[in-house]
Design a protein around this nucleic acid. Structure first.
Lengths: 109, 109
DNA sequence: CCGTATCCTCAGGGATACTG
DNA sequence: CAGTATCCCTGAGGATACGG
């Protein structure tokens, strides 16, 4: 039985990375966590332009489930929660850096 | 007048890159064009899983407008159109490669 | 301060048909 | 074969309010 003909053999690693990284907010969060660590929820919200409460929450939770970020909750009142990159998350930094320098290179003006 | 406090100074290059690259399909297209060049419309469609006619068209057009890909139309019947990366597009390949190897590293089967 | 739930809107994008 | 147009629907995500 002939499967669908596909000319690129091993797309899986790339697609896996995409599944982690893609979406409107994930990379912005990772970028910020690469710059300031650890960072509190409200600072993330302030620094990510246009993100809503709900989106930030869900995105953070997803990244946490993928073991990209670490959630550290301080048992105090008022609550304080800090986020940081896991080692797996830190290993994404080269990609972020590459995107940065590409942007510097090609962003006219 | 105090502008919104922001703790990461120069996000623009990164955001620019994101604006080019983000979306559900852009990077997949670029990835394929990095693997097989030049490539015809129908082969792209076959190799990009689940993309619709309409999406592929619009994404290709957007990438062309950003000077990431090149559209080469052969004046014959039936029509033949080939796409390839521009130099600007090729300069994205390091990012794609970085994503590939990250995926290889971290994708537990 | 941080997170979740609920509701509701609206535009991204799918299905389909048509053209050169 | 490659691309456009039209219609239409669905679900991502915004606004809001409440809870720990």
């Amino acid at each position: 039985m002939q499967e669908k003909m596909c000319f690129v053999s091993n797309k899986e690693p790339f697609e896996y990375t995409l599944s982690i990284i893609s979406g409107k907010w994930k990379l912005k969060i990772i970028y910020l966590l690469a710059c300031i660590t650890p960072v509190r929820y409200n600072m993330l919200k302030k620094d990510i332009d246009g993100i809503t409460h709900k989106m930030l929450s869900t995105q953070l939770k997803e990244l946490e489930q993928e073991d990209i970020i670490l959630r550290n909750e301080y048992p105090q009142v008022p609550p304080k929660v800090e986020y940081s990159l896991t080692p797996k998350g830190e290993s994404l930094i080269p990609i972020v850096m590459a995107m940065c320098s590409w942007g510097k290179e090609h962003n006219r003006k």
